[in-house]
Computed example of a mutant assay.
Amino acid sequence: MHATFSAEELAFQEEVRAFLRDNFNDDMAAKIRDPKTFKAATIEWQKKRFDKGWVAPGWPVEHGGCGWSDTQKYIFDSALAEAGAPDVPPFGLKMVGPVIYTFGTEEQKQQFLPGILNGDTWWCQGYSEPGAGSDLAGLQTRAERDGDDYVINGTKIWTTYAQYADWMFALVRTDNSGKPQQGISFLLIDMRTPGITVSPIIAIDGEHHLNEVSFENVRVPVVNRIGEENQGWTYAKALLSHERTALSGIAYCKQVLNNVRKLAADENDDGQPLLNNPTFQARMADIEMELMALEYTELRVLATVANGGAPGMESSLLKLKGTELQQAVQNLFFDVAGLYGSVLPADADLSSLGHDYGDQARREYMYGRACTIYGGSNEVQKNIIAKFGLGL
């Protein structure tokens, strides 16, 4: 990637901006933020990108990818941030999709990839369990072979968007005889299968993002297994590398910083705009410099993937630093809201308080406490970096 854009890249940038102006507006943004309309609005937004051919920048062209250069991916992500437009949920496009087109059978590719691309099929991730979160190899959900089916019993937890999902990709234990990592298989599970119970978990921000999913004698066809039995750990590691790269949250940080800058320009600080406060400016500058460094690191990782490599230890670095920066921008947003971001009753009339963003700042701050935990806690990422990056 070069520091300046070519004429072709500038033309692409304007094409992206025009697409966003025509296809994403405040009404759609509000519907995506509203839990009642979230799924329908998100599918609508994904289908607009799918119709344009811009829904899977990281996929190979033969499977529906965009065929973009790393610079084009950068331009697109930056334009999303400028417009305040969200990316699509990652579970299909950025997690299970790459596993299916890399390790799946032709039949699995034909069955699942089209629905992942156009948004018709929603996915959730069945990894964490009550006794196996960051220690993923400790999972105990059991899958026993019975003819052409596996019979599954156990529980998954912290399952984001399971209440919306059509399918789950899950790690299950198929053998206890060897090392914990050697007895795990990777299954694709239809969420409509009898015996599956989804129970809501209300998060610290008061919203229903998370769930506990229980399996009681759930039958899953063997043909829904990815790759070989007991080799699921191999496929899971590939998925986790893609997941942790996606968790860097650079576009999200840019969106929040842009919003904070506008709000701080209007916020009164002893007769002056808060944006003019030297301490506030220094905090903004520190975050922006670290975000720029992280962004270029991500671009180097994307270049490695584009040349046939795979995100390794670098994905842990991106997850570690990216989630720390997400919390930093959430702290800044919350500080701008001040007392208006205080905890309030669910039925409080926020319009009477003078700030209509205080509740949003509080909710993002509260939920953001989890980002250094999910996807493998940051303590685990430090161990990976120390072992594989520093040889410790």
Rank of each mutant, 00 (worst) to 15 (best):
M313P: 12
A306D: 15
L171H: 00
F24P: 04
G65W: 13
K52N: 04
L113I: 11
Q327N: 14
F5H: 14
A386K: 15
Q46M: 10
Y357T: 04
E9Y: 06
G249L: 05
R283H: 08
N378F: 11
R145N: 09
D120G: 07
I202V: 08
L80D: 03
E267V: 00
V380K: 15
I43E: 09
T141Y: 01
A83D: 05
M292P: 01
G58Y: 08
A7N: 14
V96N: 07
E15C: 06
Y340V: 02
L299D: 03
A7G: 15
G232W: 05
I250H: 01
G65I: 03
F334E: 07
G338S: 14
L274M: 14
S352M: 13
G53K: 01
E243R: 13
L240F: 03
D205G: 00
E144K: 15
H2P: 02
T297W: 09
T174G: 10
S69Q: 05
E243N: 11
F5M: 14
L291W: 03
L188T: 03
R192P: 00
Q72L: 06
L294F: 10
D27V: 08
P89V: 02
T372F: 07
E295W: 07
A361R: 00
M289G: 06
L390Y: 14
E8G: 10
K48H: 03
G271R: 00
F50C: 06
R173W: 02
L274D: 04
M168S: 03
E82N: 10
Q13W: 10
A3L: 12
E228M: 05
K382I: 11
L318W: 01
R300G: 12
E229Q: 09
V88E: 05
P180K: 14
V329Q: 06
G341D: 09
C66F: 07
Y296N: 15
S128I: 05
L171Y: 01
S241P: 03
K36R: 08
G58C: 11
H355M: 11
V305T: 10
I202Y: 08
G322P: 06
L325T: 03
Q360M: 09
D335N: 14
A236G: 00
L353W: 06
Q327V: 07
R219W: 03
F333G: 07
I250T: 01
G147C: 12
L263P: 01
S185V: 03
P57M: 06
I75N: 02
R244P: 00
F38V: 04
T323W: 01
Y357I: 00
D148W: 02
A251G: 05
C66V: 09
G92H: 06
L318F: 07
E298Q: 15
Y164A: 04
G338I: 11
D175M: 11
W122C: 06
V88D: 06
S177T: 15
A132Y: 08
E15N: 10
F112G: 00
E107C: 06
I75R: 08
G249D: 07
G309K: 07
P278V: 13
G249E: 05
